[in-house]
Design a protein around this nucleic acid. Structure first.
Lengths: 361, 361
DNA sequence: CGCTTGTAGGCAAGACCTCTAACTAGAATG
DNA sequence: CATTCTAGTTAGAGGTCTTGCCTACAAGCG
């Protein structure tokens, strides 16, 4: 039984405030009369709510006045959110760090990209990029996308046996905590990409198969990314599939057996892979992975993304057509999906934090 | 953004009523004074709510009075839920149909079991068992557990290629609709079993591996059973795993290759399996299935149930200890898990339906 | 210039809901 | 029979929402 709130006048008031705040988030600036129409509340109720929210600084009179094309009538005052803080969005990939701030309207108010030469530089570059993106603004929370598995409970990046470790050991929570007043939310880039795809397509049950230097997968069930107990759901390197000779081997070893891994590393050599004569073998192995996805997660569609995912889409589709349970395979449709997904989540959390703040005082 | 209700006095009232109803569901009978303590509401508020609910028949004066050991003081009246209807719980397995009614307190008020000889008899036995269990009561909804895959949208039982079809083609929604005034909720028995296990252990991320005449699996993520797009998540017969000779083969074919399937059927011959010298091969194949579970769903624990699941638990544990990603394997702890899970869901839905009814009038 | 029209915002009254505090009802106790 | 204790009711205050009406104010028109 989920906790039902106690009935009280205060509850009603906070619901009114939430309606007003969400309307301003969606429409940027509105007069009280417009707020009444948009929220469905009465004018006096809106008036009271605006007065309260203005008092605690969540809403501010913009100074703008209505007449200016709207014709006749008394001038109205436009209200918008006050100086209310932003959310920090960070993506960490093996080739660089991006930091960006998003405000409660969903606008990027800054964006900094810092290329890096290798994993070792992340720890030093990250705070610098963050400072620059933040630029003195009040940051309420941060959302981080990293190209490695993330421990769900600690937010730390973890290395799994025999898996490429692109970003390297890092504790983003610790690094970013000084810059903000709220939580740091860390997750794998593939999970964020899937979340962006979910928002874009509206499909509630699908799998996102990421094929790049690393191999990953995200599973969306009932409209949400499912991370599993430790946050390692979708780390498919060790999934058993069909190897070159038909033997049962871990997925990642298919690439080893075909000589498609980078020297001195566990990462995949994408350039060589794309010219390889063994693409059909790779596709058959991917077919085994898709079989696992279909049997265990039953997605409506398997979305394929990553640096070489779309290049081999036809081969994958052909391999999947031979499977006993049919499934639709499609290419990913969102660009910069990890960033988009992380930013969307940051926006949602920022908005929730503001609603929460309106309840406190 | 989930729909936030509009603020109104009526909303407060309905929340008060919900508190009173839930308190009575949990405690069976309470005086108004006790209701005030349990709900945290004031005495007058409780008094009003009881009056309203009594008027629409959801609450009734039991006639019982307090004094009887409680000492001095004015006698109080005990209130309880009125004649409020029940939920029908049905399990359909290859060897019989069980029908049972549960009331809003969670008590089974009737239970009927009808053995059957084969799948063909289900259609005729089901309505008879339902009539007997219902016995004229007002049934608000039904929850059905079936030992075959269930289409999530239609509630119909479906046959997957090369999978045993224990119960056979059936549309429980159509069969049961005449007996009740609300929805019929159908799902696979393994999913219900996992739900019972979830309620019993409180673990939010785990997998339930069912090993019986049929093979099945349920995945619980973030505290809920995840069914996938069509409801076929966990139908693992075709999952690729390690076969007898080390080749990559579908899980179900391991049993075929070892001669452990029943003649003229796709079901597993459990008696022969338990005496088989190839249990290590079976365990290794199950290890491949567990690997898929771990990589895709990242469960905290893999719970093993079914008619032969616990018998081979040690072999499974040994096979899983050799996997690169470690996972805890445990035996299922709930008895009659499918029934328990279905009944728990029926109870929850029945209670919600009553709260809903209190809002209508 | 003054009147009409139309919009923004505020005020007043009324309907409800919940709460506290005080009061009534009624049974056991000594 | 007075006391004590508990159940339930009544009265009044505080708070929120809504409807309906009023004031403020700018544009347009004769």
């Amino acid at each position: 039984m989920r906790g039902v709130p106690k009935p009280s006048q205060e509850l009603l008031r906070s619901i009114s405030d939430e309606h007003v705040l969400r309307a301003l988030m969606a429409h940027r600036r509105l007069t009280r009369a417009e707020l009444a129409v948009v929220t469905g509340l009465s004018k006096p109720t809106v008036g009271e709510s605006v007065r309260r929210l203005e008092e605690v600084g969540l809403v501010a009179d913009t100074g703008e006045r209505t007449p200016g094309g709207r014709g006749k009538g008394r001038v109205g005052s436009f209200y918008s959110l006050g100086d209310v803080g932003v959310a920090l969005v960070v993506t960490i990939a093996h080739d660089g760090v991006t930091a960006s701030c998003v405000d409660a309207y969903g606008d990027s108010v800054s964006r900094v990209h810092s290329p890096i030469g290798g994993p070792a530089e992340v720890a030093s570059v990250l705070p610098i990029a963050a400072v620059e993106a933040v630029a003195g603004q009040h940051v309420r929370l941060a959302v981080v996308s990293a190209a490695d598995p993330v421990d769900r409970h600690t937010g730390r990046l973890v290395q799994l046996p025999d898996s490429p470790f692109l970003v390297g050991a890092l504790d983003p929570v610790e690094v970013l905590r000084p810059f903000l007043s709220g939580p740091v939310i860390v997750d794998n880039d593939v999970n964020w990409a899937a979340q962006a795809e979910q928002a874009s397509t509206g499909v509630s049950d699908f799998a996102y198969l990421y094929l790049g230097e690393g191999l990953g997968c995200a599973i969306v069930s009932d409209g949400e990314v499912r991370r599993g107990h430790s946050g390692l759901a979708g780390e498919i390197s060790h999934l058993i599939t069909v190897g070159p000779s038909g033997a049962a081997v871990p997925f990642i070893e298919v690439f080893g057996a075909l000589g498609l891994r980078q020297p001195e590393s566990t990462a995949i050599d994408v350039a060589r892979l794309l010219e390889s004569p063994d693409l059909d073998v790779v596709a058959r192995a991917i077919g085994g992975v898709v079989t696992a996805l279909v049997t265990l997660a039953d997605p409506e569609v398997v979305v394929v993304g990553g640096t070489w995912g779309s290049a081999v889409l036809d081969a994958i589709t052909a391999a999947c057509d031979r499977l006993p349970r049919h499934v639709v395979v499609a290419a990913a449709s969102v660009s910069s999906p990890s960033f988009a997904g992380a930013q969307a989540h940051a926006l949602e959390q920022l908005r929730n934090a503001l609603i929460e703040a309106s309840r406190q005082r």
